Amino acid sequence: MTATSNAAEQNLPQIGTPQWLEAEIRQYLCSGSYDSSFAGWPGMNFVDVAQKARQRLLTALAEETLGRANGFGYQVTLPSDLHAWTRNKLAPMVHGLFGADECPAILGMLARNVVFLTGQNIVAVLMEQRWLSTAWNLANLYLYSVGAPALSQQACHIEGLSQETTCYVSMSYFDETDPFADFVVHEAAHVFHNCKRTTIGLGESRRQEYLLSIDYFRRETFAYACEAYSRISSMAASTRLRQQLLERHGEALPPPDDRVDHGEYLDILAEAVRARNGWQRILKRCAPIQRRQPHVTNTP
């Protein structure tokens, strides 16, 4: 018995029918999941099928997002010069992690690629996404920011998301009350291990292909540590005051991420607030562990 006849007997939409396609679209909207092979979608060949399916799913996602956000909004406005604001926000971290000759290129790249999701740009942002899963997460990020119902109760409640060199940030950033939180710094820190040096015109070597080498299992620790250290160092100039702020931070809730060892995270920050360049201490603690190759002795 064929899959088509099985579907017919169970009163299910048959593959390739308009009803089946609508069911596939609804599945994507409700869960973010989809068949990456796009089997059953119309088209002349695999590339044509994939392009048309992706376009249809993203269009449906944009329409659903706008529909859910209708009637919701926020009162916060963006800085009048977002590029200048972003450069000023990220300059301490960039100057602390990179040499003076590389800072202009890195700051320029970041200033162009921090995107706050608004009602004016959300459709364009969703439609330009390469990955359908990223688009679905961004739609939920935007819906959460305006107080609208998310696409799924299982959707992650996030305030920011990095994709390659772009940092997408919720407008709720400007309503944040946690003195140690900074989603912009957090997402920008992730760009450093996602962006290859040649992407922004910097030289690379065999051992330095990306802007920074961060241990895979400490990437979130690195981003959270940069986020907190950015806030601490901006609020206190002396070591004593930075240590006091760190103690206050340690008494609050830890980063809500099970990928972060909270003890290690606080230990990294403790080392950073005592150092002359805390950024470099964070980088050193989160760098890949260099394992020595076993020595092999040639015997005759």
Rank of each mutant, 00 (worst) to 15 (best):
Asn140Tyr: 13
Glu176Cys: 05
Ala139Gln: 15
Met127Lys: 12
Glu271Pro: 03
Ala181Thr: 10
Arg240Trp: 00
Leu29Phe: 12
Ser33Ala: 13
Val260Tyr: 03
Thr165Asp: 06
Val94Glu: 01
Thr4Leu: 06
Tyr144Asn: 15
Gly278Phe: 04
Ile158Leu: 09
Glu227Lys: 02
Ala225Val: 08
Ile122Phe: 13
Arg292Thr: 11
Ala111Phe: 07
Val123Gly: 05
Asp81Met: 05
Thr77Pro: 03
Gln10Ile: 07
Pro179Met: 00
Thr199Arg: 02
Pro288Glu: 10
Ala189Leu: 03
Gln10Thr: 07
Met235His: 12
Tyr224His: 06
Gln244Ile: 15
Ser145Arg: 06
Asn140Cys: 15
Pro18Phe: 00
Phe174Ser: 04
Arg197Asp: 06
Leu212Ile: 08
Arg231Tyr: 03
Phe217Val: 12
Pro92His: 06
His157Asp: 14
Thr198Ser: 12
Leu266Ser: 02
Trp41His: 04
Cys195Glu: 04
Phe72His: 14
Pro104Cys: 01
Tyr74Ala: 03
Thr2Met: 11
Gly160Thr: 12
Ser213Glu: 09
Gln243Glu: 13
Gln10Ser: 10
Asp178Ser: 07
Tyr144Gln: 13
Ile106Ala: 03
Pro256His: 09
Ile122Pro: 15
Asn11Val: 10
Asp81Tyr: 00
Ser80Trp: 01
Asn298Ile: 14
Ala155Ile: 11
Leu283Phe: 02
Cys103Gln: 12
Gly119Gln: 10
Ser205Val: 05
Gly108Lys: 03
Tyr28Cys: 00
Glu159Ala: 09
Ser162His: 02
Trp136Ile: 11
Ile122Gln: 12
Gly203Trp: 06
Asp101Asn: 02
Pro104Phe: 01
Ile282Asp: 02
Leu66Gly: 11
Gly250Arg: 06
Ala111Leu: 04
Arg291Ser: 04
Ala270Phe: 04
Leu253Met: 04
Gly16Glu: 10
Tyr210Cys: 15
Val296Cys: 07
Gln75Trp: 06
Gly147Gln: 12
Glu22Cys: 00
Met93Asp: 03
Asn121Gly: 07
Glu204Gly: 05
Gln10Gly: 00
Pro300Trp: 14
Phe38Arg: 02
His249Ser: 04
Met44Pro: 02
Ser213Trp: 01
Asn137Met: 15
Arg112Asn: 15
Glu247Lys: 06
Ser133Asn: 15
Arg197Val: 07
Thr221Cys: 14
Pro42Gln: 01
Val125Asn: 03
Pro288Met: 09
Thr299Met: 10
Tyr142Asn: 13
